[in-house]
Amino acid sequence: MGQSIKTTILNQTLILLPDRAMYWEDEKMLIVADLHIGKGRIFRKNGIPVPAGITAGDLKRLSLLIEHLQPEITLILGDLLHGRMDQDDAFDSLIEKWRQKHADVQLILVTGNHDILAGVSQYQFRFDQITDTLVMEPFVFTHKPTGDKTRFELAGHFHPAVTIQGKGRLKETLPCFYFSIHSALLPAFGSFTGNLVIRPTLQEQVYVIVDDSVLMLRNGSQ
């Protein structure tokens, strides 16, 4: 499971996991964003031969997390699916099997822009709830942050990453959890996803994912 980091926001304990996921301890809730399931299939369908097994691999990673943490709720913070696909029995049965395996978990989807394009409801996830915004005090869960400063937002969408530097021209770009004053962004969970390099400000806190650890970063200008 690697090394995770515990952080407290508004008296709530959030665990940042190196598997690009977050666990809200107080509510026993596992949160992942931007899986982009089916992306490889859509590429292949359009004549771009990317290898198979990406979706299966990502679902397996999610299963491992669920087995390990035993959450009551699993929340998908948008872009679970990549796009609209034709009916495909193999794909449906993959998802069906996955859902059966975790039948007792409450599955909630906060829809993202890709989910809407994909027409998410037709798939076999059997969500307990589908919504565009989920309010669970003291947090608001939304796929794309709205900039609402009255509450603390947890969001995905951007696939955030940061570039860090060191002496000897060391330089790395790493996916991260990105905490501002009124919001936090989760890294993308899917392994066939790109990222957006964000340049944080002094008031913000970044936790990078390095192999199987989450690290809090020192501030460069101090």
Binding site: G166, K167, K171, E172, L174, P200, L202, S213, G220, S221
Partner: peptide, 24 residues
């Protein structure tokens, strides 16, 4: 870049360049 060190060991010696203002 060529490295024989673990990424995590390298990252510990690096830091983030921060902007004065928010970027997005």
């Amino acid at each position: 870049q060529v490295s024989s060190e673990k990424l995590v060991d390298r990252v510990k010696r690096m830091q983030l360049k921060l902007e004065k203002k928010a970027d997005y």
